[in-house]
Design a protein around this nucleic acid. Structure first.
Lengths: 123, 123, 123, 123
DNA sequence: GTGGTCTAGACCACA
DNA sequence: GTGGTCTAGACCACT
């Protein structure tokens, strides 16, 4: 499934987000093998160098682990994944609050807007 | 007041956001004159060309209006400003929901997280 | 009646066009007195310097004539006005043809488009 | 082929017009790669920054699409191109009619003048 | 004094 | 190699 990327952010970042989301969400479980660089590149319609960079940076975040000759695997450190999930959550919340305040919205308006929207999407 | 910019986003975008936030928030009212290009450049510690680009792009968004030889002014179209405020709000909310869902959080978790955080900051 | 000017062209040009159109069209007849600089400036909501420039440039085109202490008058040289009208017509037609050809339209398409539009406006 | 630009309009606008004409006319097809910024700069005898601006503004009009590290391409959205062609046609026609009316010419005079001229040029 | 355009030259991230 | 951003500095037209 070739992905359509946003034009305003680097592809490698979008791929990183995509993968770490899948991992944090549990779609890819600890110990799971990621597709090979070449395979994933074909899959997503992206240059292999780009995928390579994605894997490399995910490894630096200790989210995945590359094993010589075997491939790249989701870390088995469940604690790390939980921690990461919290981190990402906090980051989103902080940003949301900051930006909404800068627009002049109050806490109540944020929550109301959120509820209106989330319900509208039938969640 | 020279600004310290983030390194991961173009300066001109950060300045655009800053100004449109000030406008949408009502700190700069319809018809108000913005600082001159040169003045704002000194203010923010940025090259005049960069400020020029900021003003030009804000004008394309019909948020401000440049008048030859007189300066740059906040649009007097209050409707447009209200619309803009809604747009920016929607955009933030949509992004927040999307990202949180991708992390696997439910609507309730979003709102709870939000309330916990916002209160913690004493809003 | 204050005029709303386009932002993309100098005001003095737009005023020149307006006046020379009125003259060429016969709304202002040969020998007619134009409003004083100050008066016309107030009328149109424009800086007197700008009106002054307009009159000066119209004089260079021998369309108007300024008489010391009396004011500015439409030229009484009717031939000149006829000639001017033809010139402006030719200029418009040439430009129209050139631009439409550059867009890849044929002569027939031009005329059809023109008829469709002109009729639609009930002329 | 270095271009000789008019002095009364910004270079970047003239380049925009030139390119969008070529695209609308079909000389550059959907998906075609435009010359690189540097290449086109040399081609036209203009500073690369100026070409850059041209491409950026064409992108905002969704006529072209810049892909990081790959180049700038004509949009593949044929609908958009058809729409654009119509838009540009309408714009020319409207302007022509407006200006000719302001000069006091009737619809018939416009069409006659047009036919006389267009035939004279052997179209 | 105001915005607008353009050049020259540099650096960076991306693919 | 590609586009994107930024700076420095200059010139111009408009008001």
């Amino acid at each position: 499934m070739p992905i359509d990327f946003q034009q305003d952010r680097p592809i490698y970042q979008q791929l990183m987000d995509r993968l770490s989301n899948e991992i944090v969400r549990g779609d890819r479980m600890p110990g799971d093998k990621l597709p090979s660089v070449r395979e994933y590149a074909v899959d997503t319609g992206v240059n292999p160098n780009t995928v390579s960079r994605v894997y490399r940076e995910l490894e630096q975040l200790t989210i995945v682990e590359s094993r010589r000759g075997q491939g790249t695997f989701v870390t088995e450190d469940q604690k790390r994944l939980n921690q990461l999930r919290e981190e990402l959550k906090e980051r989103q919340i902080d940003r949301f609050i900051t930006e909404m305040k800068q627009l002049g919205f109050s806490e109540n308006e944020m929550i109301q807007g959120l509820q209106a929207k989330a319900k509208g999407e039938g969640n």
